[in-house]
Design a protein around this nucleic acid. Structure first.
Lengths: 226, 226, 226, 226
DNA sequence: AATGAATGAGAGTTCATTCAT
DNA sequence: CATGAATGAACTCTCATTCAT
């Protein structure tokens, strides 16, 4: 579970209980907000409920976050935007083949994002982005762009190393993205599934799609119909 | 574009202006409602705005539909639920191979649903179903179930005719559904796309996925892990 | 059942069915209105429902009565205000003792008003008069005043003939009125009664109260404070 | 005037202004609501007006009472339902004869209910109960039943002590109730009274009716016609 | 720092009345 | 005469945000 990194968490060994709670506040609020945003969406989540779930009063929420939109942005930072630095470093350090890197990336993505609450944020943005242009712009800038850049570098790495065919990179990004996005939507759209989620095994689905994608990338299937 | 079949439109060459408007009203309202529901979602669409777009006043809307929820249900009936009868007939009459039938179905689906406003309804249900349980139940019953049944029959046809491997049918349904659902989401989540939709050519994407799926169905890839 | 006397009902032996219906319209509307006003009250009765019960359209109602208030006034005229003329004549012609006249009046009132739907109008005015000042004024003028006058003449007759003590007439009126009004309220307040109206036998109650009142009138109990 | 006992009012000598207001709010709102319900009835009273009369905004009202119906129930509790406990105790402790007890009860009822705004609630229920079934049921349960029980015990006491004839108790209840209910209706139906309420002196009316009722109870007049 | 009472714009829905046909 | 489609003001209830304490 990501700790509160949006608000400084300077380490300090000795700390009174009261004070610790105070410093934990933003994190608790972000945690509650993530829960509720994912469960109900942005518009349908009431500020008061976020506060209640974090164990504080409505007023306190607005003490830390000047508006519901800013709260949402903080949630995005905490759980997605703020983590690209580490991810980029991690993947840059990868030493194996690019197909293996891509397999690794998709597995890791599933573990850290896809299978967690965090994937609900992406679903939320797809659903409500149109109604909250400022949030959409923020998400674009802070999540979509870095995410695309990350994938672009990987694909470019494959092309540069001769492991991938010289595909059109911007198109290839979406080939990789598509199965991940579908899984997120699926996972959070319980209302549309018939008999609980027995039907779709996410990990098998993802593994299969990964291979399909790799097949395409290695053989330039994405560029022309066979 | 589907004509108003939800409300009877008996032909009658001579017709007073007022009366014609009356008969056109439900259709106009459903049309406006579809637009707005797709654009903003269910909760964020204001009844008055639907009325305004149809060129009538707030009160008139409630003359035809007793509540916003019923309006939505009527939109679903008009554009999805009410059309399964014809689709079933059409596909039952297909005489070629089952792989060709599946290719036909997916192309036709794209033409008539996926590429039109109607796909926005499915996106909407995935996004807001959780907040409107009655609508979710209605959609389940009137759209999801018939849709699954339609696909199930096709897949079963393939198995029966020895064209498909004896895959687990309920699982296979989702393999077919996945790319269609992804496309719908994608199309209606402009707020998340970077530079307009240059990036993803839906028809190419769909064609490719169709072949992948068919490959899986014909070789039972979905039945056992490679 | 009082026929439509508010609208002229000139007798005419031969009449086409269509035309008769036309002339019956106002009466049917008044009848429906009486039903609904008594059942739901003035404010809670919807114009459309009155029309529907009379078998005509909303528009037709407003063709005969320019507003809901005028409709109500017509109902009052038809069932109460317009009948004082006949009642006065009838009671003026009474030849027995004044106590017997009073007994007769109260019995007759119960038969023609108290026990019928019409008593609901009085209840309605007591309940909603405050919210509809114009109706209250109309009812005052057209029903309360004539009613008081009717009773005043009877009581005065008793005094003049030496049958009643020289009571304060205006006070005595209310002594007579009270049990009648209570009965009306009671009859139309089913929501407050515990086990259906088994408990109160209106006729016995009225008979008893009549004797009590007569006792008071004959012995001037109402005339001086003890 | 009944103090706010529906909401606890723990005494606390020192109190910040804001907090004092908060504790007073429910009482102020109930007070305003009683005023307006009595003046206009339930349906015709607008929530916003209640709030305004209590000196707060629309929203504040709904902070304390989740709906107009609940507000009404609270008013009933505060002014009627919640007071039967004390009344029962008080009357149980009475040591005189049962006729004196009944005289006392009726006098006390007039002082504490009949002559106050509270009697307007009963009038309101008689007028609008039919349109608001849930309120009617609540009033039945919380007021009518306890009220009947209270009277039943008194009448039974009289019979048990040989002071009353062995009348049918359930019928006798209504004999006692009738004059009280008439007075309430009368008092709140100003719109029907001719020249202000000069005409009916409630206390004299009640005293007279009390004696009539007692006469009946002591001599079993209620059981058979003389 | 923390509270929670208070606000008020805005949503869905109802219904008396009008008027073109 | 008769219709019923259309209107729009009015009503109840919600919730993000403010601010005195």
């Amino acid at each position: 579970m990501p700790a509160s990194s949006y608000f400084a968490d300077k380490l300090c060994p000795v700390r009174a209980k009261r004070e610790r709670r105070k410093e934990a506040r933003p994190g608790e609020l972000l945690d509650a907000a993530l829960d509720l945003f994912v469960e109900k969406g942005f518009a349908a989540t009431r500020s008061e409920e976020v506060a209640a779930r974090a164990g504080v009063s409505k007023g306190t929420l607005f003490l830390y976050f000047p508006s519901k939109e800013e709260l949402f942005k903080a949630v995005v930072n905490e759980n997605l935007a703020g983590r690209f630095g580490a991810w980029n470093q991690e993947f840059d350090a990868f030493e194996g083949s690019t197909p293996d890197l891509l397999r690794h990336v998709m597995r890791v993505w599933w573990e850290r994002v896809g299978s967690t609450r965090v994937s609900g944020i992406t679903k939320l943005m797809m659903c409500e982005g149109g109604n909250f242009p400022e949030l959409a712009a923020f998400y674009q800038r802070e999540v979509v762009k870095p995410g695309h850049a990350l994938l672009r570098r990987i694909i470019q790495r494959g092309i540069d190393r001769g492991e991938f065919a010289p595909v059109e990179v911007d198109l290839a990004i979406y080939t990789v993205l598509a199965p991940m996005m579908f899984l997120m939507l699926w996972k959070h759209s319980t209302s549309i599934c018939v008999d609980r989620e027995i039907q779709l095994d996410p990990e098998r689905y993802l593994a299969m799609q990964t291979e399909t994608v790799l097949h395409g990338l290695c053989n330039a299937l994405g560029a022309s119909r066979p």
